[in-house]
Design a protein around this nucleic acid. Structure first.
Lengths: 211, 211
DNA sequence: GATATAAAAATTGTTGACAATCTTGTCTGG
DNA sequence: CCAGACAAGATTGTCAACAATTTTTATATC
């Protein structure tokens, strides 16, 4: 039960429905989601452990504000982990998985060509998800997923920057080529380059507001 | 309150007082630690989020069993993160911090020379902790700490293997030298070599029991 | 002894009540 | 008007009770 509540609250945070520093009052949330306070409490504890929420004793919970600097730091951690994933994927990929990876890349290309930003974003996600599956590295996957939730809005904004999609797509082509070629070092290097490019983009973002 | 309880339970797990797959019964723990069930419940939730404990609906909590394969996987993630830490430390270290790092290394050398395993282990820990501080990379530090708690007993066993301390010490010397020299790439490489050596040692361990 | 079934006991999940703490609003004096 | 004190209201933290679920025990049968 509390897990579902946590999922709902997490979605609300990621969607921007709950904004940084917003108070999350147990009884209000209980009423909103039609559950008891105990479930809300447990959900907030989970979200605190995911660093999406901060709680102070006797003072309740708030949506955690993440500065651009922290988003960059989080992305740096993601970068090294995505590099590990790419390397493992290159070591472990089988024919079927390779075919699917290329398929996703083609969908990504098509979305890119028709300038369908939403579809591009979705295929980008699907590509990374597929790499996690190919890599079969549960720990890395788990840590990445958690970190991603913390920076999702920065990622959205970064991806809206002019020319970003062109760069991103080329980088993904390089990643897929290296992985399909079963070259762990090249895969690692390609992913590293991609993630550094993401970080560079983040660094160029104006430091306005919190996410 | 529940945070203190979580700390106590975590220590018991890391000390081996609570063993893999052991049931952790809320009311028993409440009696043992002199707190209410609500606090135990919250503490167990925290520990579940740290992957030290697994909980199933209606079936309670157990100490999570971590296989050698998983310990290796966790260490692989730690490896890339420790590499990031070493790199950042090399970029950011100041004179005072460099002096302290060298000081810790000397204590580590002394412990190694008098074959005081416990002191060696403590200085090893202190060295890594100091690197985390020097690196000023909160996210990496946080993720590492959590992962470390999950593998602490494997680490202990690995460090007991014959000749391990000799190798370990030499590797730490290389790390410190690179960091003090403010060479991020060398620091990263030295740490990578060290962590790969740890992983190799883990791979050589007999697959007996769970930790 | 092994197996199946029912009952009893143990444990988890949830709730409402109340104590403790914090925040907000109101009043008074300078 | 502003600052401080105090009361009222809001919220969190905790508890005991009870419902729901699982585990253990006892009993019967083969």
């Amino acid at each position: 039960m509390h897990r579902q509540v946590a999922d709902l609250i997490r979605s609300a945070i990621m969607d921007g429905r709950y904004v940084p520093n917003q108070r999350l009052v147990e009884s209000d949330l209980a009423a909103e989601y039609g559950v008891g306070r105990a479930a809300v409490r447990a959900a907030l504890a989970d979200l605190e452990n995911e660093y999406l929420v901060v709680r102070e004793p006797n003072r309740g919970a708030r949506v955690r504000a993440i500065s651009l600097d922290e988003a960059i730091e989080i992305t740096e951690v993601r970068a090294v982990l995505e590099g590990l994933i790419a390397q493992k994927a290159a070591e472990r990929i089988d024919e079927e998985e390779a075919a699917k990876l290329k398929e996703i890349l083609e969908e990504m290309r098509a979305a890119h060509q028709r300038q369908d930003f939403l579809a591009y974003s979705q295929t980008n996600r699907a590509l990374h998800q597929h790499l996690y599956q190919v890599a079969r590295h549960e720990t890395a996957t788990r840590v990445i997923s958690n970190l991603r939730a913390q920076t999702v809005r920065y990622q959205f904004r970064a991806s809206l920057m002019p020319g970003r999609t062109d760069v991103s797509f080329a980088e993904h082509v390089a990643i897929v080529e290296a992985v399909v070629k079963r070259d762990p070092e090249a895969a690692h290097a390609a992913m590293k380059a991609h993630m550094e490019s993401v970080i560079t983009t983040l660094r160029k973002m104006p430091k306005e507001g919190l996410y």
